[in-house]
Design a protein around this nucleic acid. Structure first.
Length: 885
RNA sequence: GGGGGGAUGGCGGAAUUGGUAGACGCAGCGGACUUAAAAUCCGCUGGUUCGCAAGAACCGUGCGGGUUCGAGUCCCGCUCUCCCCA
C-alpha cells in the first residue's frame, strides 16, 4: 500500500486552514510571545502570470518553507508570508487584445497561483497576503513616492523613450526587437519625453558601502558594485576656440593622460553641439544626429563594430598645454554617462584608439610601456611627452608644468592639483549608476500622487491617498506619448484640494519595480490603514533573516529595494539600514535531458561537432535537429554518439524550460500524479539549492517511492499503525541511527543542504526497514525530522501515532551525544598513501594497539615485508599510513 | 574583453577542516513473489586485468605540472562550459 496523498494532503491543508495553524501573532497581538526569538524568512513574491506556477517557483518556496517549519519547531516566532507583485505589462497587453480589464485578468491569475501554492502545503500566514495592485497597498507606495519627492529624490527630466508612431504608444525596451515594435513590427524611434526620475545616484556611495556587511552571494554583491560602477578621476574644463562664453566639461578616469588628448568627442545629444558646429559641417552633423536617434544605447556602444562620427569644425583648448584639439560628435559617447563629453586619448584607450584609426586622428603616446603603433596601451608606466613647463598657456597660466617621469598614480594627483589650482577642473568620483527612470506610459501601474496646477507639478497631500486608477472602457493607446490615462477625461481633470484651482493629473504610472521595493515591510503589518508599518512591529521583525529568490533580480530589484529602504531609514520609518541580512538565489531548473541528432539535406546524420547555430560549420548548409531517445545513444569518450553511427556525436544536454521547446513541467500534473510532498521532496533532492539542475520525472518517482516506504514503515493497510511499531525501549543501534540522522538533518537544514538531509533520512529508512521492532521513541522523532520536508505525510503519521494536535509546534528532536558513541571503529590502513586494508578496532584502542593490529593484516604485511619502515602516521578515528622505502 | 561560478560513474549528485572517492537517488543487470504484469522485496552495479573462488593488482574526480606520508579538496599553468557585465 502506498501513501494515499490524494486524500491525506487535502485533509491537512484543510486542517491548517481551519485551525489557522500558521497565523503569526506579532507585537500588539494578545497571543504574541515577545520572549521567543524571531525569524523572518521571505520569498521573492511572484508576478502572477497567466501561465500559472512554474516548477521553478516551488524550489525557493519549499526551501523557505522547510526553514520556516524548522524554526517554528526550534521555538522561534516565524514570519513567513506570501503576496503578489501584480502590476505589469502582460495583463495590460492582454487587455489591449481582449479588452478585458487588467484587474480581472490579474485576479483570475492570483486565484490560480493561490490555489497552486496552497496545494503544495506551504506554511504561509495567509492572513498577511498582500497584492501590490490593491489600492490599500499602493496607497503606501504613493506615500513613499511623496517622501522621495519631499526629500528632493524625485524629479522630472526629458528622457528618450521608444516611440512607435504606428501603434500610437511608447514602448518598453523589451517591446522593441531589432529596432521594430514587437507587436506588428513597426518602426520605432527614440523621442525625448518628460518623465519622473528617482535620484538613486545620491545613494550610490551608501549602496556600495552597505554591501560589505551583507551575507549575500559574492557574485551578487559584485554585480551590484559593477552596476554602481564607482570610478575616481577628474572633471576637466576645456575652452572652446572662438566661443569665449562656452566651456566643455569632460569626466576622465585618466587625468594623467591629459597631455595625450588629441581630440574631444561630444555625445550627439550634447547641448553645445548646435552652438559650436560651423556652417560648413552643420548638414553632416544634423544628418548624423538624426541617424543616432534610431539607435539604442546598446547598439551605440556594444553592438557597434565600426566607429562612426563627424567633425564639428570647432576646436577646444587643452588647459594643460593650450593646444587646440578638434571637437567631434560620435554616438559611442552617451549623453547620460558622465558629462556627455569625453577627452579622447587614443594612445591609452581602446575605443578612442579605434576611432582615431578610423578617422586618421593623431595618436600621442604619453605613458611608456606599450607599442602605440599597434594598439592602445592601458597599463601602468612612466609618463612621457607630458610637459608644458617651457611655455605660457594663454589665459590660464603664465607657465605650464611637467609630469614627465612620474608614475600614473603620481601623475593623476599632480594633474588634478594643477587643474584645481588654475580653476580648470577638479578631482571627482563618478558613478556608472544612472538615476532611475521611474515612469511608464501605461495604465496598469500605480498612479502618481501628483497633479499639475497651472502647468506646474504639485504633490497631493497624504490624506487624499490613494489616488486610484480610473476604470477605463478600453485600453487603447492615447495616440500621443502620454499613456492611456490621458483618455480618462473625468479622472484626468480634477481640482487642487488645497486651492480649489483646476488641475490635471499625472498620466504616467509607476514601473513594476515600485510595489516590490517595500513589500517585505507591509507583510509585517499588512492591514494598518494609519501607517505603512507600525514602528514596534517593524523593529521586532526586521531585518529579513533569509531572503530566497532568483538571481535574475540580483541587480535591479535588490538594488532598488535597498535604495528605498535607505530612504525610509533616513525618514525614520524603518530602524535598519539594510533590509535583507542573508540572501540566497535558487538555481534554475532546466527541462529533462535531451539528446539531439543533426541531419543534412540528404538525411545523413551530421556530427554535433560540425554544427553551430543550426548550420554545418564546413559546408554552411542548414541542418535539421531531431530528438533521439536515450536508448539510441551511448557514451563514447567525452560525448554521446548514435548507436547506429558511432562516429556521429549528438548534443546531450538539458535546455531551459520554454513553451516553444515543449519541455515545461507543470507542478499541477506532478501533484496530481505523485502528490505535493513528493514534489517538495524532489525539488530539494535534485541537488544543491543554488545550482542549475535538470528536471527528471524518474527522480520524482524515486522520492515518491521513499515516501511510500515511510508510509509502510509506520502504517498498516487499515487506518492504524504497522505491527512493528511498539512502545518497547529502543536498542542501542536504533538510538545511534536515529541520533546520527537527527544530527545530519539538523546541520543540513541550517546550512540549506536539503539534498543531503533527505539522503540521510533515506538511509534511516533503509536501516529501519530491516528492524523487527520499531519503537515509538525512534519513529516519532523521525517523523518530526521529516515534517518540514513532507508535512502532509508527517502530520498524518503523527496523528496515527496517537497525537491530537498538529506537529507544527512540537519541539525539534535534540541530539544526545552519548547515543552516537560507537563501540568499534573502522579505520583505513595505507602503505605509502595507498589503501591496503580496512581494520575494525575497539573505539577505545590506543595508538600502539591500532598500529600493531594494522601491521598484522595480511595485505598490509605484504607491502611492508622487505622494506624499511620510515614513518608511522596515525590520524585518530581516520587513517593509518605506513611510509616505507 | 572583464568579473563570477562550474567540470566527479550511463544520469542527478555525495565526500563539512587535506585522510577509505562515488553516500543517497535514478537508470541498468540478476533473483524472489505473481498465471502474468505492475507494485514490493533481496542482491550486483566506475574501468581494466589476473583468479575456479575467496580475493588481488593497476588505472580513475576536465588536461599538464607542483606541494604533501597522503590531493576531488591546496598552489601554478591550460582547456571546455554556464551566468552576469561590457
Amino acid at each position: 500500500m502506498s501513501y494515499p496523498f490524494e486524500t491525506v494532503e487535502p485533509k491537512w491543508q484543510r486542517y491548517w486552514e481551519a485551525r489557522r495553524t500558521f497565523r503569526t501573532p506579532g507585537p500588539g497581538d494578545p497571543d504574541f510571545d515577545p520572549n521567543k526569538p524571531k525569524y523572518y524568512v521571505l520569498d521573492m513574491f511572484p508576478y502572477p502570470s497567466g501561465a500559472g506556477l512554474h516548477v521553478g517557483h516551488p524550489e525557493g518556496y519549499t526551501a523557505t518553507d522547510i526553514l520556516a517549519r524548522y524554526k517554528r519547531m526550534r521555538g522561534y516566532n516565524v514570519l513567513h508570508p506570501m503576496g503578489w507583485d501584480a502590476f505589469g505589462l502582460p495583463a495590460e497587453q492582454h487587455a489591449l487584445k481582449t479588452n478585458t480589464h487588467p484587474r480581472i485578468t490579474t485576479e483570475a491569475n492570483i486565484a490560480t497561483f493561490r490555489r497552486q501554492l496552497k496545494a503544495l502545503g506551504f506554511s504561509y500566514d495567509w492572513d498577511r497576503e498582500i497584492n501590490t495592485t490593491d489600492p490599500a497597498y499602493y496607497r503606501w507606495t504613493q506615500w513613499i513616492f511623496l517622501k522621495l519627492y519631499e526629500r528632493g529624490l524625485a524629479y522630472q527630466a526629458e528622457v528618450p523613450v521608444w516611440w512607435c508612431e504606428a501603434l500610437g504608444t511608447t514602448l518598453a525596451n523589451e517591446e522593441v526587437i531589432d529596432g521594430k515594435s514587437e507587436v506588428g513590427g513597426y518602426p520605432v524611434e527614440r523621442r525625448p519625453l518628460r518623465q519622473w526620475m528617482l535620484k538613486i545616484t545620491a545613494y550610490a556611495e551608501r549602496l556600495l558601502e552597505g554591501l560589505d556587511e551583507l551575507d549575500w552571494p559574492e557574485s551578487t554583491k559584485e554585480m551590484q558594485r559593477n552596476w554602481i560602477g564607482r570610478s575616481e578621476g577628474a572633471d576637466v574644463l576645456f575652452d572652446v576656440a572662438g566661443f569665449p562664453d562656452e566651456q566643455i566639461r569632460v569626466f576622465t578616469t585618466r587625468p594623467d593622460t591629459l597631455f595625450g588628448a588629441t581630440y574631444l568627442v561630444l555625445a550627439p545629444e550634447h547641448p553645445l553641439v548646435d552652438t559650436i558646429t560651423t556652417d560648413e559641417h552643420r548638414p553632416a552633423v544634423e544628418r548624423y544626429r538624426r541617424a543616432t536617434a534610431a539607435k539604442s544605447d546598446l547598439e551605440r556602444t556594444e553592438l557597434q563594430k565600426e566607429k562612426t562620427g563627424v567633425f564639428t569644425g570647432a576646436y577646444a583648448i587643452n588647459p594643460v598645454n593650450g593646444e587646440a584639439v578638434p571637437i567631434w560628435v560620435a554616438d559611442y559617447v552617451l549623453a547620460s554617462y558622465g558629462t556627455g563629453a569625453i577627452m579622447a586619448v587614443p594612445a591609452h584607450d581602446e575605443r578612442d584608439y579605434a576611432f582615431a584609426r578610423a578617422f586618421n586622428l593623431p595618436i600621442r603616446e604619453v605613458v611608456s610601456g606599450g607599442d602605440v603603433s599597434k594598439e592602445a596601451y592601458t597599463g601602468d608606466g612612466i609618463l612621457i611627452n607630458s610637459s608644458s613647463e617651457d611655455r605660457e598657456i594663454p589665459g590660464i597660466a603664465e607657465r605650464g608644468f611637467s609630469i614627465n617621469g612620474l608614475s600614473v598614480a603620481e601623475a593623476k594627483r599632480k594633474v588634478i592639483a594643477w587643474l584645481e589650482a588654475h580653476g580648470r577642473g577638479e578631482g571627482k568620483v563618478n558613478y556608472k549608476l544612472r538615476d532611475w527612470l521611474f515612469s511608464r506610459q501605461r495604465y496598469w501601474g500605480e498612479p502618481f500622487p501628483i497633479i499639475y496646477v497651472d502647468g506646474q507639478p504639485k504633490p497631493l497631500p497624504e490624506d487624499v491617498l490613494p489616488v486610484t486608477l480610473p476604470d477605463l472602457a478600453e485600453f487603447k493607446p492615447s495616440g500621443t506619448p502620454e499613456g492611456p490615462l490621458a483618455n480618462a477625461t473625468d479622472w484626468l481633470h480634477t481640482t487642487d484640494p488645497e486651492t480649489g484651482k483646476p488641475a490635471r493629473r499625472e498620466t504616467n504610472t509607476m514601473p513594476q519595480w515600485a510595489g516590490s521595493c517595500w513589500y517585505y515591510l507591509r507583510f509585517i503589518d499588512p492591514h494598518n490603514d494609519e501607517r505603512l508599518v507600525d514602528p514596534d512591529k517593524e523593529r521586532y521583525w526586521m531585518p529579513v533573516d533569509l531572503y530566497i529568490g532568483g538571481a535574475e533580480h540580483a541587480v535591479l530589484h535588490l538594488l532598488y529595494a535597498r535604495f528605498w529602504h535607505k530612504v525610509l531609514y533616513d525618514a525614520g520609518v524603518v530602524a535598519t539600514p539594510e533590509p535583507f541580512t542573508r540572501l540566497v538565489h535558487q538555481g534554475l531548473i532546466l527541462g529533462e535531458m535531451e539528446y539531439t541528432a543533426y541531419y543534412d539535406g540528404d538525411g545523413h546524420p551530421v556530427s554535433a561537432a560540425f554544427v553551430k547555430e543550426g548550420v554545418h560549420t564546413e559546408t554552411g548548409e542548414p541542418v535539421t535537429a531531431r530528438k533521439v531517445a536515450e536508448d539510441e545513444v551511448e557514451k563514447r569518450g567525452d560525448g554521446f554518439v548514435l548507436k547506429s553511427h558511432p562516429q556521429v556525436l549528438v548534443d546531450a544536454r538539458s535546455h531551459k524550460m520554454s513553451k516553444s521547446r515543449g519541455n515545461v513541467v507543470n507542478p499541477d500534473e506532478v501533484v496530481a500524479r505523485y502528490g505535493a510532498d513528493a514534489l517538495r521532496l524532489y525539488e530539494m533532492f535534485m541537488g544543491p539549492l543554488e545550482q542549475v539542475k535538470p528536471w527528471s520525472m524518474k527522480g520524482v518517482e524515486g522520492v515518491s517511492r521513499f515516501l511510500n516506504r515511510v508510509w509502510r514503515l509506520v502504517t498498516d493497510d487499515t487506518d492504524g499503525l504497522a505491527a512493528a511499531v511498539t512502545d518497547a525501549a529502543p536498542s542501542k543501534e536504533q538510538l545511534r541511527t536515529l541520533h546520527q540522522t537527527i544530527r545530519k538533518v539538523t546541520d543540513d537544514i541550517e546550512g540549506l543542504r536539503f539534498n543531503t538531509a533527505i539522503a540521510a533520512m533515506m538511509e534511516f529508512v533503509n536501516a529501519a526497514m530491516k528492524w523487527e521492532a520499531l519503537p515509538k521513541a525512534v519513529v516519532e522523532p523521525f517523523v518530526l525530522l521529516l515534517s518540514p520536508f513532507a508535512p502532509h505525510l508527517a502530520e498524518e503519521l503523527w496523528q496515527r501515532l496517537g497525537h491530537a494536535e498538529s506537529l507544527a509546534y512540537e519541539p525539534w528532536p535534540a541530539v544526545v551525544e552519548a547515543y552516537l558513541e560507537e563501540e568499534e571503529l573502522a579505520l583505513a590502513v595505507q602503505v605509502n598513501g595507498k589503501l591496503r586494508a580496512t581494520i575494525t578496532v575497539p573505539a577505545d584502542a590506543d595508538k600502539e594497539a591500532i598500529l600493531a593490529r594494522a601491521k598484522a593484516e595480511d595485505n598490509v604485511r605484504r607491502f611492508l615485508d622487505g622494506k624499511t619502515l620510515r614513518r608511522e602516521i596515525y590520524v585518530p578515528g581516520k587513517i593509518v599510513n605506513f611510509v616505507v622505502s
